[in-house]
Amino acid sequence: MTQKTDFDGSTSQNNPKQRKDLLPLWIKFFIWIFLFAGIIGCLILSFGAFLDDTDLSLYGIKTNHPYSATGIFICLLFISKGFVAFGLWFEYQWAPKAAIIDAILGIIICVMVMVVLPFVFTTSYKLTFRLELIPLYFYLTDMIKIDKKWVNLK
């Protein structure tokens, strides 16, 4: 089987034609999840008054009330993740930088939930490790690698 080559002799795999081709498969998978989550976040904020008991959770922050400060914060996080996913899927130039900011914000929130909040809201400190930190780290490193290629592609 032969590979297609461009005029300069490089293979098509090394020279993607679309920005989406720069994204790893696992990020493409999560893009669809967070597109859906962003839509759900908008719907919860819009129709939350009609919902009696809604379990919302992200990065270890939990609530049952969509119109509490915590509920609005979680919904806004989901909407911002949906916005970033939209930008990545439709190849906007600002999307990798927004994804880097999203990953850094997620890491900061996870660390705050692990380290600061147990001291503030409970009398006994429980050490927890948020597993979200693992994919957030890889998301951040992948998006940093992709950023320059993404901007130069179009």
Rank of each mutant, 00 (worst) to 15 (best):
F29A: 10
I101H: 05
G60R: 03
S80L: 11
K62V: 05
L25S: 14
R130I: 02
Y67C: 02
V111K: 12
F121A: 04
P24H: 06
A49Q: 10
L43A: 10
W89N: 11
L127H: 07
F36R: 02
L88K: 05
K97I: 10
V113E: 08
S68T: 12
S57C: 01
T63S: 05
G38T: 03
I101F: 14
A98K: 11
Q18R: 15
S68F: 07
L23C: 08
D6T: 15
G71T: 06
T11V: 13
F129R: 02
L105T: 13
E91F: 07
I104T: 03
L56N: 02
F83H: 06
F7R: 13
F129K: 04
A98S: 13
F73D: 00
L43S: 08
I44T: 13
I44N: 12
S57P: 00
I107R: 00
A85W: 01
I134L: 12
V120D: 02
C42Q: 09
D6N: 15
W32A: 09
L58V: 07
F90G: 06
T54M: 10
D6K: 15
L88D: 02
T54C: 10
S46W: 13
V120H: 04
I79Y: 07
F121C: 03
T70W: 04
A69P: 06
T123R: 07
D8Q: 15
F78Q: 07
K17Q: 15
L43W: 08
S12D: 13
F47V: 03
W32G: 01
K28N: 09
I134H: 04
I27L: 14
G87S: 09
Y92W: 14
M112F: 14
L88Y: 07
I100G: 03
W32V: 07
A95W: 10
Y125W: 11
Q13R: 15
V113K: 11
G106M: 00
N64W: 05
A95L: 08
D6V: 10
D55F: 09
Y67Q: 10
S12V: 15
N64R: 13
C42A: 12
T11E: 14
N15Y: 12
Y125D: 01
Y125V: 07
L133S: 03
S46P: 02
V113A: 04
A95S: 15
S80F: 14
S57E: 06
F29Y: 04
W26M: 00
F36T: 11
N64V: 09
T123Y: 07
L127N: 06
K20I: 15
I74G: 03
L43G: 09
M114R: 01
S57A: 05
